[in-house]
């Protein structure tokens, strides 16, 4: 049978494909090793907690802060204070802060200026439409807009950090403007230091 094969092709093909196969094989073997050695479990555990990161102990919180200046704490936790408002919503593909939010953001700036030990994270978000990486950049620009505004109003750059999640963390899941409008937002998160 083998004599029927075009010998030139055969020799070339066997050489090339054997080389290819051996590479592939080693790749496949270690992939499985990787599955077992990875610090991120591939077992079907539900909580597969990551090492590193902020962890649960000093996590980011959207509600009030614990400890620290009790007066500041009280103000942050007061539901009647403008500081209880912590979400700024944005128009489509825009990072412009609407007039209706300036009073609220000013209040946060004043609070940060008066409490230099208190820090915040500005989380930028977008709706799900369009390209994921562009949305990450758009979420970042929204968070930067709020940060810039806070700094202009007296907060210190050491107090604010921007983190964009793009479209990864929608507040609402649904496919209409009613949902999308809720997702184009920046959330002000006070950090428990």
């Amino acid at each position: 049978m083998i004599k029927m094969i075009n010998r030139v092709l055969l020799a070339g093909a066997v050489f090339a494909l054997v080389a290819c196969s051996s590479t592939k094989q080693s790749g496949a073997d270690v992939l499985i090793d990787d599955l077992e050695s990875s610090e991120f479990s591939t077992e079907n555990d539900d909580d597969g907690v990551l090492t590193g990161g902020l962890g649960d102990g000093n996590g980011v919180s959207g509600s009030g802060i614990d400890g620290g200046d009790s007066f500041a704490l009280e103000e942050l936790n007061n539901p009647d204070s403008p500081l209880s408002e912590r979400i700024i919503y944005f128009p489509v593909d825009s990072n412009v802060i609407g007039d209706e939010y300036t009073g609220m953001v000013e209040a946060h700036a004043r609070f940060l200026a008066e409490n230099p030990d208190i820090n915040i994270i500005l989380e930028g978000h977008t709706d799900e439409r369009g390209s994921r990486e562009y949305n990450l950049a758009l979420g970042e620009r929204r968070a930067q807009s709020v940060s810039d505004f806070l700094l202009l109003q007296g907060a210190s750059s050491s107090q604010t950090e921007t983190v964009s999640y793009g479209e990864e963390r929608p507040a609402q899941s649904g496919q209409s403007e009613a949902f999308w409008g809720q997702n184009r937002r920046v959330e002000i998160l006070y950090i428990n230091n």
């Binding site: 083998i2 029927m4 055969l10 066997v14 054997v18």
Partner: peptide
């Protein structure tokens, strides 16, 4: 065309895709 290729057992699926490529 006529070809022959060799593969270990674990690589047979990949070898089949290489047949498809050719």
């Amino acid at each position: 065309i006529g070809y022959a290729l060799r593969a270990n057992r674990g690589d047979l699926r990949n070898a089949a895709h290489q047949v498809s490529d050719i």
